[in-house]
Write a protein that binds this DNA or RNA. Structure first.
Length: 559
DNA sequence: CAAGGTTGCGCG
DNA sequence: AAAGCGCGCAACCTTG
């Protein structure tokens, strides 16, 4: 059922078979680290166990490198904080003072297993790898986690959450391994067309690309000819004020309000500057190797359970450069995103039947608009987003009462989450992930006495209310997305002949790199996985979670 | 001069 | 401070 992997003496690894409660089942095997991939492959093919390890990130990249993949795992380090913080385990013995599971790697060179840098560290790999936790320690942790789930208020949901999270750990490693297909030549062409030729980095001084220099010259001239550094907000602000442009910040949206002739070149400069520094030539050199962008994903890196990423800005690939994300010859990129995921999640959470009617429409916002906003889609969208984010002023705030009248259930749910957060309580997603409790500082502020302090405390309370309001929706949406991803992976593994690979995931969007001949079948898997995810989390509910699928050659053709 | 904070902007 | 949630990163700027 389970096999636990742990470091042992002298470069050996223990494989410990365990039963469903984490009790040792058969004898422990000791294998040499170099023989581990073979051993894993063998056990995997025989009975497809659930692999247990301190963290997938410490084991799985090396297995993938050796062309060994596994179906299922239990990632102790990912599951621990979920259980320690969950409202559902409050009455269990699982310790709530969350201490992260020790990281066995030297953390100094970040992304140690990052394939982008592996060549630099190949020799150090074995030598500097500190031993991970002992198997006895890990077995005890597994038992404690399994017991916490079974004693919890809802074992099924927590079990699903932990399984989805662990599947996420596998998928993250696999996607990092495969990488996003990236055409360096197309990216360079874009850079050259937009910025001019690559500046010579061997020359001294600041090197701006030609088109940035040209815009800068124009900008300086229109601001009166004084030299200043446009990349310094302070200097830029002074230069603008000298020219009589009275702005409070140098943000683009605010600059846009002004009609001054300097504004156009300034905004253009900012745009180019962003491309140059965030996704320019040095980004390409650092992150794209052999036609693949291999970001490091941090599963559960966001409080709400969303993934984060480290290095390369993987979750912020600008629309501008998406043309460089390009399918290989004979392949397509299948880009699928869940349509209006968060409002649909809210509908299911609140079991708001009126909103469920609106959700019959593939375009939920259009459905809402038809029901209560005179067909004005933009208004409906602003109102709904405002409800989920906690808007109080502006157009969004004004639309709230109207929304609350039409959808008392849905609005009531987020309002209740907000009030709980303001009181300092924790709130919980559908599958049992709870938000962090308020900090000591926050609690202390709430006990303050003077009027001024109390105003600040109210401010903090409202701010926490907006956080908890959004947490239940964003967190449950993240759970839906994890299940979607895991179900899709399962489908793809069951049909290896398709030759399709998951290569990218972004909150509510997945990208599959698929041979052209497999596209139709992959699309079916994607839609099937979405239905499965909805049913796993919410059961049989009359709310659909449609996905929009684009089959393209390059990413900027999607949406 | 390294560490940490702020500004601004990219993404959902 | 673009009305309201969640992030990462580069560059500038301040602090120790």
């Amino acid at each position: 059922m389970y096999i636990l992997l742990a470091d042992s003496e002298g470069g050996k690894v223990t494989l410990t078979p365990l039963d469903a409660r984490g009790e040792a089942q058969a004898e422990t095997n000791l294998v040499d680290r170099t023989n581990l991939p073979e051993a894993v492959r063998d056990r995997e093919s025989r009975n497809s166990p659930r692999w247990v390890w301190d963290r997938a990130q410490n084991w799985y990249p090396a297995l993938l490198e050796a062309k060994v993949s596994v179906e299922r795992c239990h990632d102790l380090a990912l599951c621990r904080p979920i259980l320690a913080g969950s409202e559902l385990t409050l009455e269990t013995d699982y310790p709530r003072d969350f201490v992260p599971i020790e990281e066995p790697l030297d953390t100094a060179p970040r992304g140690f297993f990052n394939p982008n840098q592996q060549s630099l560290f190949d020799d150090l790999d074995q030598a500097s790898r500190k031993r991970g936790p002992e198997s006895t320690e890990l077995i005890a942790e597994l038992r404690a986690q399994l017991e916490a789930v079974s004693q919890s208020k809802n074992p099924q949901r927590l079990q699903l959450l932990l399984a989805a999270e662990s599947a996420g750990a596998l998928i993250a490693a696999e996607m990092q391994h495969s990488g996003v297909p990236w055409r360096t030549d197309l990216h360079e062409k874009l850079l050259e067309e937009t910025l001019g030729p690559r500046p010579d980095s061997s020359a001294l001084g600041i090197q701006r690309p030609a088109k940035m220099e040209a815009l800068l010259a124009e900008l300086r001239e229109k601001l009166g000819g004084n030299p200043f550094n446009p990349d310094s907000p302070q200097e830029l602000m002074r230069a603008l004020h000298r020219a009589g442009i009275e702005v409070k910040t140098t943000r683009s949206w605010e600059l846009q309000q002004s009609k001054h002739p300097a504004i156009a070149p300034l905004l253009a400069y900012k745009k180019l500057s962003r491309l140059f520094s965030a996704n320019g030539w040095s980004w390409l050199e650092q992150w794209v190797k052999d036609g693949r962008f291999r970001p490091e994903y941090v599963v559960g890196g966001v409080v709400s359970g969303r993934w984060a990423s480290r290095g390369g800005g993987a979750l912020q690939i600008p629309k501008q450069v998406r043309g460089a994300v390009h399918a290989d010859p004979g392949y397509k990129l299948i880009v699928a995103d869940a349509a209006q995921l968060e409002p649909r999640v809210l509908t299911a959470l609140a079991q708001d039947s009126k909103m469920a009617e609106a959700a019959q429409d593939h375009d939920l916002y259009a459905g809402i608009a038809a029901q209560g906003f005179g067909g004005d889609r933009a208004k409906a969208k602003i109102a709904l987003l405002g409800a989920m984010y906690g808007a109080t002023t502006g157009e969004s705030g004004r639309l709230m009462p109207q929304l609350a009248r039409t959808y008392p259930q849905a609005v009531g749910l987020v309002e209740a989450a907000a009030r709980a957060g303001e009181r300092g309580e924790i709130v919980t997603t559908k599958l049992g992930r709870s938000c962090p409790p308020p900090s000591e500082r926050w609690l202390q502020a709430q006990r303050s006495t003077t009027e001024q302090e109390q105003r600040w405390a109210d401010n903090l309370a409202r701010s926490r209310g907006r956080f908890t309001r959004n947490f239940v929706v964003q967190g449950t949406a993240a759970e839906w997305a994890s299940c979607w991803l895991a179900e899709l992976r399962r489908g793809l593994r069951a049909r290896p002949g398709l030759g399709a690979e998951l290569v990218f995931f972004l909150h509510d969007e997945v990208m599959v790199h698929s041979p052209e001949s497999s596209v139709e079948q992959v699309n079916e898997l994607i839609e099937g996985a979405a239905n499965s995810a909805a049913e796993l989390i919410f059961g049989k509910v009359p709310i659909n979670f449609p996905v929009s699928i684009a089959v393209v050659d390059h990413y900027d053709q999607a949406k």
